[in-house]
Design a protein around this nucleic acid. Structure first.
Length: 286
DNA sequence: CACCATGTTCCTTG
DNA sequence: CCAAGGAACATGGT
């Protein structure tokens, strides 16, 4: 679920729900996700604190918190890792097996659950400092992109995952953007010509914007997903896999027909991660 | 049992 | 110091 678009959709949904809510108590069920913040300081800052705002930076959720009896705002930094979820759950319901942190807000709990515990819920903002520009922001210019790609011998697909180049693209949208731009994922970053850089720049933005739009149309409070009872939930939309027009054009489609030319989509491994592409539509340099 | 998984960080190698 | 590659983290699905 969680690359930039999924986090953006989650932030938009959570913001009005959390706004103004006071944290009555904090239940830390897996201290690992707080790292490097200690259980003690985490609890101390957040107990009695109020949610005053919520924004996004790359794949991070930034909760603005006003601690009890203090004027100074703090930032609670959230990250979903690979399998993290955040949602509200009526108090008293059975907690999910992998609940990592539970904030009691009165009649309702705000849950951070994460099966693999790769995610974060921390007061330490250190991870944010090396992030590159937001792909949908004004700082992400074609010129910036071109300059950052120019020196690198690394394959362009791998380069797109570098969060200091541009922040928020993950493994799914890296493949999708390259397909959209018709550029081979194996092409060395420095080998992209001016036209390709511009095409890829546009494709990145297009792919992310469309994913946000798609996510915004999906009901987040559906029932019948097996767990069913959640008031709020963000996850893979149950109907997503059943839509005839596939939302994702290449990711996880190895062996299936390219939507443009019908050629079989190929899966390769780069930097120990899967890349999907059409060997015909995405040739080397041209 | 084998391999795969939407992410980040750390360690090693060159 | 830098770039690049791979393992580690932890759990579950197929």
């Amino acid at each position: 679920m969680p690359e930039l678009p999924e986090v953006e959709v989650l932030v938009r949904h959570l913001r009005p729900l959390l706004q103004g809510k006071v944290i009555r108590s904090v239940d830390i069920r897996r201290a690992r996700v707080l790292r490097p913040t200690s259980v003690r300081s985490f609890t101390q800052v957040l107990q009695g604190a109020k949610f005053v705002g919520l924004t996004r930076r790359a794949k991070y959720l930034l909760f603005e918190i006003k601690p009890k009896a203090k004027t100074r705002l703090r930032t609670l930094v959230g990250h979903l890792g690979m399998t993290g979820r955040m949602y509200l759950l009526p108090k008293g319901r059975r907690l999910p097996k992998h609940a990592a942190v539970v904030f009691n807000l009165g009649a309702i709990d705000f849950i951070f659950e994460d099966t693999r515990y790769f995610g974060r819920m921390t007061l330490d903002p250190v991870a944010l400092k090396d992030l590159g520009p937001e792909p949908l922001g004004d700082d992400f210019t074609v010129e910036h992109f071109r300059r950052k790609l120019s020196g690198s011998a690394q394959a362009i697909k791998v380069k797109l995952l570098d969060q200091s180049l541009v922040a928020g693209i993950g493994n799914i949208y890296a493949s999708e953007a390259l397909f959209r731009a018709q550029i081979s994922p194996r092409l060395a970053a420095r080998r992209l010509n001016a036209a390709m850089v511009e095409r890829l720049w546009g494709a990145i933005r297009q792919v992310l914007i469309e994913a946000i739009e798609f996510g915004s149309t999906v009901a987040l409070d559906y029932a019948g997903n097996g767990e069913g009872e959640r008031l709020f939930y963000y996850g893979k939309a149950p109907e997503a896999s059943e839509v005839p027009e596939e939302r994702l054009q290449v990711y996880d489609r190895a062996g299936r027909a390219c939507v443009r030319c019908g050629t079989s989509i190929k899966r390769i491994v780069q930097a120990a991660r899967s890349t999907f592409f059409c060997p015909k539509c995405q040739r080397g340099a041209f």
